[in-house]
Computed example of a mutant assay.
Amino acid sequence: MLYSKILIAVDNSEFSEKAAINGFKLAEQLDATVALLYVVDTSKAVANIDTGVYPEQALFLLKKEAEQTLNKLAALHTGKEVVKFMPQGIPTKDIIKTAEKWEADLIVLGTHGRTGLMHLLVGSVSESIIRHSKIPVMVYPSK
């Protein structure tokens, strides 16, 4: 199968940078259009009244972090222009939704490699994407 539109889902982790670099290399080899996606996780926009941070401010900071991450990672790509997506919502749902809307042929993402209790409590975005995506998913391991 030929991949012409590759969607790389990222966050601000080192694992995402590794996935982005490898996704960019693949896109260059295939002469594919590439997009970076950072889902602003609205569940993390919580208030902390003790420190004076309200939900709107927390969301603003999360969006700023997402924008900086997208720009930093996009600068690593030497090929065609990078399309950037920054929806607000739930990563596991919005990665798949964006891939389908953009008509991506492949989703590329990294994994944090959590195991045991952390994996059970936090869950795995990568695992959920693999289970629910209708298009191929390429996961770069943390190690």
Rank of each mutant, 00 (worst) to 15 (best):
L76A: 11
I90K: 08
K64A: 05
I95N: 10
K143G: 15
D94G: 08
E28Y: 04
L62A: 06
N71H: 09
N12A: 08
I130A: 04
L37M: 11
Y38P: 07
I90T: 12
K5L: 15
S126I: 07
V40S: 06
S124P: 09
E67R: 13
K101M: 13
G79E: 01
E14Y: 00
Q57C: 01
A47M: 03
L2P: 11
D105G: 13
I6K: 08
Q88C: 15
L2G: 10
S126A: 15
G23F: 00
I6L: 07
G23S: 06
K80M: 08
M1S: 12
L76F: 09
T42C: 10
L37R: 09
M1C: 09
S128A: 15
E100A: 15
A58N: 03
E103M: 14
P91A: 04
S142M: 06
L59V: 10
N48P: 00
G123L: 12
A35K: 12
T78N: 12
K5R: 15
K18E: 00
L61D: 02
V10N: 00
F85R: 15
D94V: 12
Y38V: 08
T42E: 07
K72H: 04
K64T: 07
G52T: 01
H77F: 13
F60M: 04
L121K: 04
L117I: 09
Q29D: 04
E17N: 01
L62R: 03
P87H: 10
L106R: 08
I107C: 08
S128R: 13
K25T: 11
L120Y: 13
V39G: 06
G89V: 05
S142Y: 06
A58V: 04
N22D: 01
N71A: 14
F15N: 06
L37E: 01
S124F: 11
V46L: 08
V10L: 04
V125N: 03
K72S: 07
K18I: 09
R114Q: 07
